[in-house]
Amino acid sequence: MSGDLQAVWLTALLAATTTLLLVPLASPLAWWLARSTSPSRSVIEAVVAMPLVLPPTVLGFYLLVMLNPESAVGSLWIELTGDSLTFSFSGLVIASIIYSLPFMVQPLQAAFRAVPESVLEAAATLGAPPRDRWLNVVLPMAKRGYLTGCVLTFAHTVGEFGVVLMMGGNIPGETRVLSIAIYEHVETLNYDAAHVLALGLLGFSFLSLWLVYRYAGHRFEVVRG
């Protein structure tokens, strides 16, 4: 596999892994943020949203400090898996999860907030226990939030640069994702190769956003029977 194709594959794998892991991780957090009246809610909301405003290099730097092999988390990880969290694919996944957290949490939070308490009460009076209410009332009503969250998380992870560079460097097949590959092509004045990858990312970004706007603005099919 050529270096660029390998970068495309690695990027897709990183984005898919991040998205799949964020769905179960972000759901309870988004639910709590949507329903809680705790005073600590705004603090947690601010922490979750920080990657939106923080320079990626700052986040990458702190992740590097927290997850390097000398740190408590990094050394524990090495003990458990034998691998380092820095300059490795697993480290990139952790960094991406943190970096993309608001892109999954915020659409879910908005979707959960739109589920009226009164509807959940009605479902409870009909004999639906909490898990049943979650699966058969909340989830169908939050479909658009999940679609938006997944598309935005995937697209955002595909476009990651600063955090990846700080945490993963540029190791082909391990941490060299598309944005790093483009950067490398530009550095070596290989503009043709940079163009191909950049144009691909441009088209992908447009398609992702179109998908969100196209379907987030439309009603989903009504549940029948």
């Binding site: 509807v119 479902a123 009909l126 549940v223």
Partner: peptide, 19 residues
């Protein structure tokens, strides 16, 4: 307080299935 995003039939079925 009907369940939104569902038809009338689906609302009735929701109750029937949990009766």
């Amino acid at each position: 307080r009907l369940l939104p995003g569902r038809t009338v039939e689906s609302n009735l079925a929701f109750a029937q299935q949990r009766a």
